[in-house]
Design a protein around this nucleic acid. Structure first.
Lengths: 212, 212
DNA sequence: CGAAAAATAGACCAACAAGTCTATATTAAC
DNA sequence: GTTAATATAGACTTGTTGGTCTATTTTTCG
């Protein structure tokens, strides 16, 4: 069906436009009309595909996340060991492509709305769960159950914290600095781990090839 | 002067009302009228003291931060050693009083606006700088300069990350869990440090007395 | 006390934004 | 090729919101 394809194409187009509009103006200044202008369409048409503004912004949230998820997955399917899976998550979160202040602004702006919209909450929960379970599964094979839980939570909280810094800091956090801090964390949590260091190097290589 | 005092009293009252309104409705749904209603005053009067909505929300940001800052300071002035100062910051950030989902919602909602308002940016920069320098001064006396830099940044990023979790997670993060994760971090960064553990205990005691 | 200054609020206005109604192209289906 | 369905958009409506104008009350102070 052409029509089905067009429908989903438009929704994707407008979701991206919405996300980019949030990047520029922030959630609270984003209007349906601005999104439409950004997409080169009419407000009516955008509304035609989404029904209302909230659904459109949900699309934006989903879109923004998909950028990151795609990179995680690309690295993940090329991972063979637990440590390689851990570094798939870490490196994807601090990729040169994605670790960008503008993206972080939009990400944060959408996050901040989560507590006030049940649909946002649902979407966000899925996102977090996936990241958490990715980390947890890998870490379980590295350390004991209890510590895997704690460190998985700690690592993902730290990732979020660094992203928040990227968004709110006046002179934006450099990706190398963020990676250095993550490395300090990993090195302290799991010192003298040869496999960890090797996995990191290997995944960094793969990432450089896939996302130059 | 009574008048000066009243002026500053009203501004404080309305800043608090604005913050609480953001707690309930989120930044993007907070209106001057809602704030006024919450404070039991007229919109006109609120506007009289702040001039415009943006200044009012700046007040909210300042107010929200002051809650935390007051607790940090209270612990800080009772600290004698570097480790005690570090734990003043940590425990204040995860105090039973302040570590609350509603507060976190508002905090996050205001943070998300930082990139879009230069005044918010300025205020936020001051807040971050103070926290960073508090940690950095103390850590410099504990470890070498380079590592003090990295760990101070890492610790404050982790704090922010945990607050973000508190805000966006469906089943809200318990304060003990957050403290456990921070402790895992500190224990990994500075293992086998007798002074650290003692300082933590001491400051926790003081906190329990000051903020029961 | 009485005038000036400050505090407070009701009514109003202009801007704007979400969403609808209606109309016109464009595509698909027989 | 004609008809039905879909895509797109312009005009309009309705509600909301930030901010102003004006008026009234309260306080200050000589």
């Amino acid at each position: 069906m052409k029509s089905k394809r067009l429908k989903s194409l438009r929704r994707n187009e407008y979701s991206q436009a919405a996300f980019e509009t949030v990047c520029i103006y922030g959630f609270s200044s984003t209007t349906v009309d601005l999104v439409a202008k950004h997409a080169g369409a009419s407000k009516t048409n955008v509304l035609h595909y989404f029904g209302n503004k909230t659904s459109l912004l949900e699309g934006a949230l989903r879109y923004g996340n998909s950028v990151l998820v795609d990179e995680v997955r690309a690295l993940m399917i090329r991972s063979k060991t637990p440590w390689e899976r851990v570094y798939s998550v870490l490196l994807a979160n601090f990729s040169a492509k994605t670790f960008d202040p503008k993206l972080a602004h939009a990400w944060l702006s959408l996050c901040a709305e989560v507590p006030y919209h049940s649909n946002f909450q649902r979407i966000q929960t899925v996102i977090h769960s996936r990241m958490h379970s990715n980390l947890l599964h890998a870490l379980r094979q590295i350390t004991d159950e209890k510590r895997a839980e704690v460190t998985a939570a700690l690592i993902s909280a730290t990732i979020d914290g660094l992203w928040l810094r990227l968004a709110v800091q006046a002179e934006p956090l450099k990706v190398e600095t963020a990676l250095g801090q993550i490395e300090e964390l990993m090195n302290s949590l799991f010192p003298n781990d040869e496999n960890r260091v090797l996995a990191k190097r290997k995944m960094a290589e793969i990432q450089k090839i896939l996302f130059p």
